[in-house]
Nucleic acid binder design. Structure first.
Lengths: 208, 208
DNA sequence: AACAAATTTAAACAAGCGTTTAATTTAAAC
DNA sequence: GTTTAAATTAAACGCTTGTTTAAATTTGTT
């Protein structure tokens, strides 16, 4: 997939991503970005028009191919529960290796200030939900999954668990003795992912 | 419980809570707070010292009695699963009726900027985890709960699900046709709470 | 009523903000 | 090699920021 941004823009976007994620949109100044990216302050306005439009560009830049990955997964020849597990893995993996942008999305697009820019993001979420629905309904038809689950609330459980864990990173680093970044990442890739898969599986299959 | 803040301070704190939650800490100015609270800009410095210390005071003001509520729950004479359900209900209820401060905690205390102020908040979280552990271990001893769950990851699932739902409020309002604030709140109190309880119960009891 | 302390005010402070301007350098086109 | 366009720069713009100051007002105490 070809990007619509040139090298300089990408350079700016990637610095902005790091800083927005670290200190928030309002907590980051254009001069701040310029200094780290080693460019002139005017370049942001020159290339993106404004700070606000820089944020919009950043989101487009980072979220454009998730849908494609999900579609591919849907067409694989797997049992529903394995698809669910793969979907969870895909989500966690993807978000974990793009922590910056997802933290930004999580933060900035839930404040009242930025409700209008929500359109494209909302479409993305609707598409993701549709994919999940397809998988679960398949499992329900096969009689594997129970039918009294509220499907739209499953995404919050998957993503929310990850986010809440990650948002409290210092707390869990301390609690679980994850002293290095590698240990932390590995815990996510193994234990946290497994916990989420275990949770969703139990929810979908357990008969009370 | 007697508060350490006088009327004027409380007036400022409650305005700050609303604005911080709406627009973030960095997105809210002292003049902004002063205008809404109908006080002079200097009063914030006068009563709290600085904007940063205003935030700290706000957290103390709002989180001081959660521990007490949890302790009370622990001592009730209930089956472990009922305690878990009540704990979930307590969490959701409490956070939902103090959305402001929890959104602020969620936002502001996960950025690198404010890692140092984390102490008191971290203690609160550790206490909460301890309470949850006590309940679950009780259920495990009784042979009701399975033993291969990762207890510290259960809180992220409970709170993360709620937060992710709430952070995407506009999306779910639209998706689930929750046109009024009442409908939205009612959905949380019934469906979302039930979903979380169902999820945790399945996780704790289901044998694969 | 008189004094002292606490509260509230308007004004000022320096610093930082996002953005624009106009001049200069670099690159591309012919 | 000259011309035209794009990219980059330093400086300035007007505005907002958090905080301090010093004077004015209110409140409490004797």
């Amino acid at each position: 997939m070809k990007s619509n941004f040139n090298d300089k823009q990408i350079q700016i976007l990637e610095v902005a991503e790091v800083l927005f994620a670290e200190k928030g949109f309002d907590g980051t100044s254009i001069r701040n970005i310029a200094k780290v990216a080693k460019i002139n302050v005017a370049m942001v306005s020159y290339y993106f028009g404004s700070k606000e439009r820089l944020l919009e560009s950043l989101i487009v830049y980072r979220t454009s191919d998730l849908k494609h990955q999900l579609d591919k997964l849907l067409q694989e020849d797997l049992e529903p529960i394995d698809k669910i597990n793969k979907l969870i893995e895909l989500y966690i993996n993807r978000i974990n290796s793009n922590r910056g942008i997802y933290r930004i999305l999580h933060f900035e697009f839930t404040t009242k200030k930025r409700e209008q820019n929500l359109q494209a993001f909302s479409e993305l979420k609707k598409g993701n939900l549709k994919s999940l629905e397809t998988i679960i309904e398949e499992g329900q038809k096969k009689g594997i999954f129970r039918k009294d689950v509220i499907i739209p609330l499953i995404t919050p459980t998957i993503l929310g668990t990850f986010f809440h864990f990650h948002m409290n990173k210092p707390f869990f680093e301390n609690l679980l003795n994850l002293k290095t970044e590698d240990l932390y990442n590995n815990y996510i890739k193994t234990n946290l992912t497994k916990h989420i898969q275990q949770t969703i599986k139990a929810l979908l299959i357990y008969e009370s």
